[in-house]
């Protein structure tokens, strides 16, 4: 009798747990969100360069904002003469950035100013930099949680 009760309880627990897990899975969808450690303003390293985002204020939803990016090479030396293009979007929703941000100023010491950045909703955003400099071309992707 006792064994039966234990078996039933184990079964109930298993069903409840898997139900919960299903419910949790249904909340996320599409591409898998990276681990929390993969999120943030950097430093993020590509194959040649390391980039760090330095927003003047914490990133906010729906606001047009300006973000600086600092780029160094493998030896930690600032990359001063890079051409940078910006792309990105929300992998789970299949849409790109709502604006066309671009580098408006090279501030020297490997720091560049990116204007026109907007995130139109909360959630996981990819912010991708294509960096082209004399040492070669590279791509660095940031995962941002808005």
């Amino acid at each position: 009798m006792k064994r039966l009760i234990v078996t039933l309880l184990l079964a109930a627990t298993a069903v409840a747990t898997s139900g919960c897990a299903t419910l949790m899975t249904m909340i996320g969808k599409g591409p898998t969100k990276p681990a929390a450690s993969e999120f943030g303003l950097g430093p993020r390293t590509g194959s040649l360069y390391t980039a760090t985002l330095e927003p003047a204020q914490p990133l906010r939803k729906r606001k047009l904002q300006t973000v600086q990016v600092r780029i160094v090479d493998a030896s930690g030396k600032p990359v001063d003469d890079a051409a940078i293009t910006i792309d990105g979007g929300m992998p789970q929703h299949g849409h790109g950035l709502p604006t066309r941000p671009r580098v408006t100023r090279n501030l020297g010491a490997g720091v560049y100013e990116i204007e026109g950045v907007r995130f139109s909703m909360g959630g996981w955003w990819e912010f991708k930099l294509a960096i082209s400099a004399p040492a070669g071309s590279d791509r660095v992707t940031f995962n941002l949680a808005l």
Partner: peptide, 18 residues
């Protein structure tokens, strides 16, 4: 047995709270 009862109740409660 008591522990399993408690665990089952907890998991079910957590689920219904969601």
């Amino acid at each position: 047995t008591a522990w399993l009862v408690a665990a089952s109740v907890y998991v079910l409660a957590a689920c219904s709270a969601v």
